[in-house]
Every structure is written in structure tokens, then in C-alpha cells.
Design a protein around this nucleic acid. Structure first.
Lengths: 193, 193
DNA sequence: TTGACATTGGACACTGTTGTCTGATTTATT
DNA sequence: AATAAATCAGACAACAGTGTCCAATGTCAA
């Protein structure tokens, strides 16, 4: 999935591609409209170099998004959503992905408005699909409310995690409180009682 | 607060100002980066006319934001947050403001990134201050959870309302379901049980 | 009706961004 | 050491947006 059959690039090219996507990730996190020049500057590379590897700005954004979602998806997977009590599992998954997601907080939001809703949903699939079985399992055994769809619950959880990230960044929530607050709120919103 | 002492404008000027802010509201809702030209086109006015009344793009945005927040604030006030049982009152307030807020859904989000967090908070005051007493009242009598701040609860409610608006717009939630879903989720997130 | 106010339509300079190109230079690979 | 790949430095055209200006025209108010 990384670069096996298509073409063999030189080692420094490979390195630069990594630098560029990393820099883009950073830059876009603080400013969703960061220019190619700004990204190049951060990557320690000349602007034209970016165009060596990414034909357009759009294509760079696509690559960055895919990298971010893949990284979050991996973190979710490693938290083993299918193991144990639904409530415990959800708690574990949220906790494990929270730091990951908070990095990309702004970055993943770029797609909103940039892509049609359908496409956006498709690209979030690597993350969302992993939640579905967990939530449905919880709904089946009465741990989570089942008067709304699992998709809605996912959206609510995501919103709360993003919110926690925002509030932390804004200083309205302390490092010490944020995790507990986020978790209890998410569980309370999703819980059945 | 509208235009009492500062200076008397001609009637057509007054009318155009209204057209412009309305057009800006519309345009910015669908595209947060809508240009002055696009706004002028919608207002049925030439671009230079906008600059007659708003010296810069920024100042127009400010005016639009203030208009939007004022409108939402009024709707909240009319729902009488201070009357009756906290749970009932909150339900009433959310329901009453929901349609209002869903119009401005995207518009109010423009400020994020445009303004420093502190300033942003200040401008949201007309809306948020009205929630505080209601939430604190509910926290005091055990209706709402009190292990987190009232400010956090406000943020959570706002996030859920915005989310509902997004999901409705994306067709992931039906007109019939959206209000119930939003309300039950918000109350469940805020409730103490 | 008249004079002041306001809008029009068009032009203008300025800035920032994207994407392309080129020739010189550096770097990895064999 | 030789060759191919990649980067650099800088220029360029094209475009879109902001803010300003002006002369002509339209509109309100007394």
C-alpha cells in the first residue's frame, strides 16, 4: 500500500515525500489554508520539489488525509474494539485514539466543504467501520442506547472528542480534566439508561 | 442598538445595508470563503457599494456575525430559559433555537480560526450567558451532572446541535428523526442519572 | 425642484497563490 | 567514476481577490 510495485524512487525522494506530508500535516493543523510555499518552507524544501511528487495542491491534501486517517485507523485497531465488555472496549478505544485524533483535529476537518458529503463519508470509512461492530454489540446487549442508529452514535463520539481537543487547546479545559471529562460525557451520551 | 444616534442614512442606503448583510449570511453559509463579488451579486448590488458601508471584508464579517448571534440570542431569550423545571426548560430552549442555529450552522463557524479564542468567546457571550443560569440551576437540583463545568455542558450541547444540523443536511438523518435524536442525545449527555 | 446623498460600471494597482519551466547543482545508485 | 535521479534557485504566466478611484447616473428628502 505504501510503494511496492508502481515505481522505485530514490532514497532521498522517499525521504522528502515523508518530510512534505509531515510538514503539510503540521501546517494544515494550524491553518487549513496554508499555502504550498508555507508547507515547503516547513519541509525544508523548495516549492517546486513538492510538485515533483504531487501534481496539484489537491493531490497533496488527498495524500495527507489518507495518511492521517490511516494512522488513526491503526490506533483504533490496536485498541482491539472487538474485545471485552462494550463499555470497557469503547472506553479503551476512545482513550487510545484520543491523542492521535487530537493531532489531526483541524486537519481532518479540512475535507468538510472540500469534498461532497458522500466522498467524505467514504474516506472516513477506515475509522468508522471499526466502531460499528462495537456499538452494535453494545446496543444488542443493552449497554448503549438503541433508539438511534450506530452511525449517529459514532458521529456524537467523534464530535465530543473533537470538542475536547478544542477546549483543551483553548485552555478552557485542563490537561488533568480533559480525558475524564471527554470519556464520561461520551459514555453518558451513548449509554442506554 | 440598531442606528439611533451615530448618523442618519438615507432610506435606500439602509435598505442596501440589510440586503448586503442578508446576502453575506446566505453566501457564507454555503461557502465560508465567499468573495465580496459573490456577496455583491447576491445582494443585487455592485461591489463598490459594499465598501460604501463596510470599509473592509473583515468589518462585513464582523457585522454579519453580530447579526447572527443577536438573532440566535433573541430566540434563546424568547424561550425563557429561567422558567420551569431545568430539564423541561433546556428542552424548550434547545428546540426553540435549533432551527435558528441551523441556518447559521456554517456561518458561526467562520470565526474559528479567524479570531483568537478569547475574542471568539467574548462574541459568543450573548448566546452562552443565557445558558449558564439554566445549567447551574439544573446542576444544583441534581437534574444535570455537576462533575463537569457548566461551560463544558454548553459546549457539548452546541456541538450536538451543530452535528444534528450537519447530519440532516447530509441526509444521514431524516427530518422526522432529527429533533428527537438531537434532544435525547443532548439531555442524555447533560443529565446526571 | 433642487441639492445632497447614493449607486453604478468600469478601471486600476496590489497582493498572494498556483502551476510550469529551465539550467545549474547536488545526491543516490551501480 | 559514471550515470541517472532529484533538488535548487529563480523566473514566469495566469488567475482570483481586495481595496481604491472616478465620472455619470439615479434616488431620496425638504
Amino acid at each position: 500500500m505504501t510503494a511496492s510495485p508502481p515505481k522505485r524512487r530514490r532514497a532521498d525522494a522517499e525521504r522528502n515525500i515523508a518530510s512534505i506530508t509531515d510538514a503539510a500535516l503540521e501546517a494544515l493543523a494550524s491553518d487549513p489554508d496554508a499555502s504550498m510555499a508555507e508547507i515547503a518552507r516547513r519541509a525544508g524544501v523548495v516549492r517546486a520539489t513538492i510538485y515533483m511528487h504531487f501534481p496539484t495542491r489537491e493531490s497533496l491534501l488527498d495524500a495527507v488525509m489518507e495518511k492521517a486517517t490511516a494512522q488513526v485507523a491503526r490506533a483504533i485497531r490496536e485498541a482491539e474494539p472487538e474485545v471485552g465488555e462494550p463499555v470497557e472496549a469503547l472506553q479503551r478505544v476512545i482513550r487510545a485514539t484520543w491523542k492521535e485524533l487530537s493531532q489531526f483535529h483541524g486537519v481532518l476537518a479540512i475535507n468538510i466543504g472540500r469534498l461532497p458529503a458522500k466522498e467524505l463519508r467514504r474516506r472516513h470509512l477506515p475509522m468508522t467501520t471499526q466502531f460499528i461492530p462495537l456499538l452494535e454489540r453494545g446496543q444488542a446487549d443493552g449497554a448503549f442506547r438503541s433508539d438511534v442508529s450506530a452511525e449517529w452514535l459514532i458521529a456524537v463520539i467523534r464530535a465530543i472528542v473533537h470538542l475536547a481537543s478544542t477546549e483543551l487547546q483553548a485552555g478552557r479545559l485542563s490537561q488533568a480534566d480533559v480525558e475524564r471529562t471527554m470519556l464520561t460525557t461520551a459514555l453518558s451520551a451513548v449509554g442506554s439508561q
